[in-house]
Amino acid sequence: MAEDHAKATHSVVREHNLTSALQLVLSGEGLATRASIARRTGLTSATVSSLLARLIGDGLVVEGSLAESTGGKRATTLRVDAARNVLLSVIVQPGLVRGAVVDLLGDVVQTVAHRTAATATVEDVRSVVRRLAAATTARVVAVAVQVPGIVDADLIRESVQLGWVDVDLGRELAGIVSAPVHLVNDADAEAIADYAISDEFGANQLFVSLSTGVGAAVIVDGDVLAGATHRAGEIGHVPVLFGEDAPLCACGNRGCLEEVVSVTSLLGLPHGADLEAVDVAALAALPESRERIAAGARVLARALLMVGAALDVPNVVLGGAAPKLGPDFIGHVRAEAARHPVRAAMPLSFRYAKTAQEQPFRGAAQYALQATLGVSWAR
């Protein structure tokens, strides 16, 4: 029994050391050496050489050129084999499923897009995954699928935007490629991507994604909170307007936050409209849109005052398509929050997300990379 425990402990320690070595190679950007990894980890040279032999044998790491001389024998540099190992990152939206082949450095190699006649179906997602798999000859390390809705392991518990309830998407996609499939909520994915490249707001922040819907991700001490039932951040269907004249939401209720502050609502577009196909900035500049944007910003700010005070998270990042609305929208949000200070709570700070628009596939890919190999793209 003791011998089995010792073997299990040794195996756990070795896997941890393998992950640490791979992370140092990844973040070393081609300059890491066996000696530098030994110094950073405190492991012996022999142990590090054994770990690197395993990673090289697994095809994840390759040797590069000789490092700069430090007076003795020049060491050989190490880098991840980004070209021969990729991730498939898929984003599911009501009228559009798009995907990308992403290498291990986070760079997009190939993209595909599939517009749907109606709400996206599981077969639409399968089609995009198949097209991505056919577009690369590299080994697929993992498949990441970003969806609007409540994600619980392989299940989509509920997606109001997609009309999905208890869809076992992991099972539906299994077998297309011989790699694990990881599902992630869209706001969580966007928050992961943004947090990975910016430390401006520190380790505690609320990421609010505004697009065809409204979702949020709560980051506390650098980790995205899942909640008791994987529903943390599901604020889109909380009623904020009341009465029979409140707008009817797709969920069946009236006056939901999503019907007031989603970008489609702010621009006067129909529910589920494809925001990739319209000029958001131009529509936002129209007089009627400016009125809705100002009113929506006031509602959003008031809602976030409650959320920020409840969670003690003072920093709010607005993502999704919100940055395309320009400075007026976030200016209105800041002004409204400042007009109603919450006693005993930290004042809220706001900024737009920096990654989601330019690198939309990075968040889901980062999630899958962490879940599969235990490493991440360093800030």
Rank of each mutant, 00 (worst) to 15 (best):
P287H: 01
P287T: 02
P287F: 10
P287M: 08
E288P: 01
E288K: 09
E288A: 15
E288F: 08
S289P: 12
S289N: 06
S289D: 10
R290K: 15
R290P: 09
E291K: 05
E291D: 13
E291W: 07
E291M: 12
R292W: 06
R292H: 10
R292T: 10
R292F: 11
I293A: 08
A294N: 03
A294S: 14
A294R: 13
A295L: 14
A295N: 13
G296V: 03
G296W: 00
A297G: 15
A297I: 03
A297L: 04
A297K: 05
R298S: 15
R298F: 02
V299M: 12
V299E: 14
V299Y: 07
V299K: 04
V299F: 09
L300V: 02
L300I: 02
L300S: 03
L300Y: 11
A301L: 09
A301V: 00
A301R: 02
A303F: 06
A303E: 10
A303T: 15
L304N: 02
L304K: 01
L304C: 04
L304I: 02
L305S: 15
L305V: 05
L305M: 11
M306W: 04
M306R: 08
A309E: 08
A310E: 09
L311Y: 06
L311D: 00
L311G: 01
D312T: 00
D312Y: 02
D312Q: 04
D312A: 10
V313E: 08
V313W: 12
V313L: 15
P314Q: 07
P314A: 05
P314N: 02
P314T: 00
N315T: 04
V316F: 06
V316G: 06
